[in-house]
Design a protein around this nucleic acid. Sequence first.
DNA 1: GGAGTTGTTCCGCC
DNA 2: AGGCGGAACAACTC
Length: 274
Amino acid sequence: MPELPEVETVKRTLAPRIEGLKIKKCSVYYEGSIKTHSSDTFRKEIEGAVIKKIERRGKFLKFFLNTGKILLIHLRMTGNLILATEDDPVTKHTHIIFYLDGGLQLRFIDIRKFGTIYLLLPEELDRVHGYAILGPEPLGSDFTLEYFKEKVKKRDKNIKTLLLDQDVVAGIGNIYADEILHAARINPSRRARSLNDDELKKLYDSIKKELTKGIANKGTSFRNYVDGEGSRGNNQDFLHVYKKEGTNCSRCGTTIVREKLGGRGCRYCPGCQK
DNA sequence: GGAGTTGTTCCGCC
DNA sequence: AGGCGGAACAACTC
């Protein structure tokens, strides 16, 4: 489940290896991943382009090409971007291979085929709904406590589901939402509007803290996630609630529970998250 | 082998 | 009008 820390780690592992390299050739094995072009027109447009720079926005990766276009990629649940060489066997679920200078390959691998790829001009980015609605970067200067308070106080849904709304703040997914709420000692079912200023401050700080920790630990690897080098992250060893149901809370000793909230799994401590 | 897994979008409802 | 909640998608694991 690549969320902000995982996507940031992919960016950090890919950038020094492939910025400045040319895409000499491109093979598409599953056309459905590409949302803006047929595989033929996609190949024609991208072959010969040089990858100038890679950036992350929310859970999106942006590859700036010297053609003026941007390759926009969202990994959704099981997408991976992994560097390889021709000696590495092509694994199942490999949908696109970008052949780069020096025999290097960038492979887009996605078990569940939910990942999406767009090739767009900068001014066309907002045609992608999920990109256009993105709220501020949680680790950027636009994400202020004032903004967060204002946004949350207007909403009536449970705070866990609100943290997953990409228009409130970009990049939080199910794992970090649960961890953030535990760190802030807030019950996931609390109505957003019901949080007081102290709780909102604690929540705001916890968003930054947990995401920063996730990046420092190179992301959370439970099932499919690996970085651009194919390496697993370490953050799964430092979680307090996610996938911890049935164990004792590290803070108060109460048994961590798992419930369904907003249609997905939600883990929390009924002892210290009020 | 049916349920569980989740990021996003869509749709009906209030 | 617009937010909320739930369904749908997909393919694999357990």
